[in-house]
Amino acid sequence: MKKILGLVVGLGLVAITAGTGYAMPLIWDVGAASAPAYGDADTLTGVFDQIAFASQTSTIQYDTNGNGILNVGDRFGDAGDLRVNDLLASGIIDKEGLNQLDGYEVTAQWSDLTGYVAGLDNADPTNTRLDLIYDGGTINFYLDAALDSEFANPAGSAPPAGAGGTGFANGTLIATLSVLQGLGHTFLDFTGSDLANQGSVELSLQFSYLLDDFWLNALGVDLLDIAPVDWYFMTTDMNIDTPTNVPYDNALYIAYSNQNGSGEMTVVPEPSTLLLLGGGLLGLAFVGRKRSRKE
């Protein structure tokens, strides 16, 4: 009986640990998204741990309570364009021509990220701090064999940056992710000046679609052959650069910004599966206890 209870407790601890997820090293088979082989005989990248990306966003800050000024609780909507710049690993890897002529590009686009102001320090209008909570929205990732994406502000250093580029939703859809939660903070100047390198955002996203045979683990096995799509997540960490806010119709303002950041995939069993596992183990412990009493 003690052994059974020990097993229950031990696996319970494993389940709790799994709730935080663990990183999933990846291989892309770019051929599954119609990209050609580049420099070798196959269309497989090497194993990588993270993607590195650049993005530009436009964030509309609404006056949710209608009092004409920015307050905690006021909601915002965010649209953006993203380009994967690199595949990150400890050594040099085969990237199958990422962002190279005759290779391919991976981009993403969104138009419906939402959230609200969770904290506000506006004592200094030249350096107002906003703490942000993200609570919804969807991001789509695409692979395109044509290098045709272009940011609204290619230089990425002068406003307006913001969404509105071209070619970010071209090619084959390789993934769809939904925002579970996110935390951010940024500083804005409400006197008309620009601020540089001011802020960060961390997002937790859940996959709802993965292109078959494109997303592989480090052994080359399709992730969808290992676990259901909704067991996979991505965490991103972004720096916000050159935020600029200007008046906007029917809202307090629109903020344009550039980001650079990275993302990694994690895998976590869904809560219902963990509950079923826990229930089964508790049942096993109960049966074991009854047997022990009879003996």
Rank of each mutant, 00 (worst) to 15 (best):
K2I: 02
K3H: 02
G12H: 11
P36D: 14
D40S: 01
D40N: 10
T45L: 08
F48N: 00
F48C: 03
D49Q: 08
A52V: 03
N71T: 11
V72N: 09
V72F: 09
R75T: 07
F76G: 14
L82C: 07
L88P: 01
A89Q: 02
G91W: 14
G91L: 13
I92Q: 09
V106G: 04
T107M: 14
A108G: 14
W110A: 15
G115T: 01
Y116H: 11
D121I: 13
N122R: 02
L130M: 07
T138R: 10
A146Q: 15
E150I: 15
A155M: 10
A158R: 13
A175K: 10
L180M: 04
G184F: 02
T186G: 10
F187H: 12
G199A: 07
E202Q: 02
S204P: 04
F207A: 00
S208P: 07
D213Q: 03
F214M: 13
A218N: 06
L223K: 09
L224Y: 04
W231T: 12
T235G: 00
M238N: 10
M238V: 00
D249K: 07
N250L: 13
Y253L: 02
Y253F: 15
N258M: 09
G261D: 02
G263M: 06
M265Y: 11
P271H: 01
L281Y: 09
L282S: 13
G288Q: 11
G288C: 02
R289C: 14
